[in-house]
Design a protein around this nucleic acid. Structure first.
Length: 476
RNA sequence: GGCGGCAUAGCCAAGUGGUAAGGCAUCGGUCUGCAAAACCGACACUCUCCGGUUCAAAUCCGGAUGCCGCCUCCA
């Protein structure tokens, strides 16, 4: 089965045909490191992380590049605000980015280039563009001439003429066309700068991606990704620069993920409703965040709400509960053959990385395996089904980037956190459970029930299992 | 003004021409001293509305309504 994916460039779902058999070159726009990352950055990182994992699992040799934009107006502004150097700002947020990504189990790409470490490549590319007359210099600034690129607008589906009617663009009279964009910006005093043929300055935003993608993946590569908002102008401009400079198609496929809303509203400075990754991690398990972000198709908008996060958390509990049950079922095996669930999951993933459908398959596997465990766990064919399902669930978990924890540990950690959060006296709870156990032994049901009720008032739920009583905390 | 997307049960969400996955919630049941967990069953004769194409449409085409995004270096 081949992988199909939706290509923004053609607005169609297409079969994936790599440039080189068995290999994938993928470039994804990473963060501009001027602030903490929010849940939208997490979605983009996780969506492409899953795509990366799935290509690897499908046997491809993947080169995955994700850049850091570490020189930019916003970083400079932030540095001025804080009274520090701009590289100090970017270094701080790069570290924070790694903390967030590691916590979310986002795998490191093959290469993570920094714009500031590729200034030579950038200057060279700008020179090529000037030389080929696709760009022009004015007072130390260099602009790309959009009218020189006949296909300008092909990614975003706009025409230069139509856009000019809108006219919400800066009116720099020096530019030949208002949509001409900066390849190189001359430095103002105090700004970070590098020497160039046009004087001291720094790269424009778009050029770094063309320079770095061509360096690590070649001038023509397979997949370019990023958030939907990057389609215009960022990716449109990347295409214009790259195809003009290299005279060949840039990326074959363009993949864009949708936004994350917060309580049905777009995250914005004015609303002040940014959900930062580090804050989300304080409230929810990292794998619950992954499960939530993957529970809708990657191109659809998704709404981050307390309810949807609680549901994702419940779903994760359900998955770990089964894994715990399987651990305790003591099924010795070294079998690793995948079965029907993996097959169905792969079919969903082959179809434009449909993780929502794939998660449906995962829950099917869980339900059916629980049923077998309830009804006839010891029959030979039951054992086969259970072992096979377990292999599939693990493998699906690897693609989704969940199930990193030992199930017993998962529940233990969760409980410890809840004990702290709800300020529960664990020793007293244990004593009450012991008292109830004694009461039950004597068949003093009224007393046992009274203890249960008291615990319920403390938001504690008991479960009598064959091997003893366990307790859980429900969040108030 | 230009371009694009979405509308499926109480909520979230798959579905890409063949008769509506999955999750949460709710209601029955099995299990349990009682519960919880797990499982079983019920829960959209119908997919915003109106037309059209077709033997067949949630799916394709046209129109209407509603919501959203981009055109501001916001993933």
């Amino acid at each position: 089965m081949t992988i199909s994916l939706f290509n923004t460039l053609t607005r169609k779902k297409e079969k994936f045909k790599p440039i080189q058999e068995g290999k994938v070159g993928m470039y994804v726009c990473g963060p501009t490191v001027y602030d903490s990352c929010h849940i939208g950055h997490a979605r983009s990182a996780i969506v492409f992380d899953v795509i990366y994992r799935y290509f690897l699992a499908s046997g491809f040799d993947v080169t995955y590049v994700r850049n850091f934009t570490d020189v930019d107006d916003k970083i400079i502004n932030r540095a001025n605000q804080l009274g520090i150097q701009s590289h100090e700002v970017s270094e701080k947020y790069i570290l924070e980015f790694y903390e967030d990504m590691d916590a979310l189990h986002v795998q490191r790409p093959t290469y993570e280039p920094y714009a500031t470490k590729h200034i030579d490549n950038i200057i060279q590319l700008v020179e090529t563009l000037i030389q080929k007359q696709f760009a022009y210099e004015i007072d130390g600034d260099v602009y790309f001439k959009v009218e020189s690129f006949a296909d300008y607008g092909k990614l975003s589906g706009r025409k230069l003429e139509d856009m000019e009617a809108g006219a919400r663009v800066d009116v720099d009279k020096r530019k030949e066309n208002p949509f001409d964009f900066a390849l190189w910006k001359s430095a103002k005093p105090g700004e970070p700068s590098w020497d160039s043929p046009w004087g001291a300055g720094r790269p424009g935003w778009h050029i770094e991606c063309s320079a770095m993608s061509s360096k690590y993946l070649g001038e023509h590569f397979d997949i370019h990704g990023g958030g939907k908002d990057l389609i215009f102008p960022h990716h449109e401009n990347e295409i214009a620069q790259s195809e003009s400079a290299f005279n060949k198609p840039f990326s074959t496929y363009w993949v864009h993920n949708g936004f994350v809303n917060i309580d049905s509203e777009k995250m914005s400075k004015s609303l002040g409703n940014f959900m930062m990754i580090k804050d989300a991690l304080k409230r929810y398990h990292p794998e619950a965040i992954r499960l939530f972000l993957l529970s809708s198709h990657y191109r659809s908008p998704i709404d981050f709400t307390e309810q949807s996060m609680d549901e994702a958390s419940q779903g994760l509990d359900k998955i770990y509960s089964l894994m715990d049950r399987l651990d305790k079922a003591d099924l010795k095996t070294s079998q690793t053959k995948t079965g029907e669930y993996w097959k169905k999951f792969s079919e969903a993933m082959d179809d434009d990385f449909n993780t929502a459908r794939g998660i449906g398959v995962l829950f099917d596997a869980i339900r059916i395996t629980n049923r077998i465990l309830d009804e006839a766990p010891n029959r030979d064919n039951s054992i086969d089904s259970i072992i096979c399902a377990r292999v599939d669930i693990q493998k699906i978990g690897e693609i989704l980037g969940i199930l990193h924890e030992n199930p017993e540990n998962y529940f233990k950690t969760k409980k410890t956190a809840a004990i702290q959060e709800e300020a529960i006296d664990a020793i007293r709870v244990e004593e009450m459970i012991q008292a109830r156990k004694n009461a039950r032994k004597e068949k003093e049901w009224a007393k046992a029930d009274q203890i249960r009720q008291e615990l319920e008032k403390m938001n504690i739920i008991l479960e009598d299992r064959p091997d003893g009583t366990i307790w859980k905390i429900v969040k108030s």
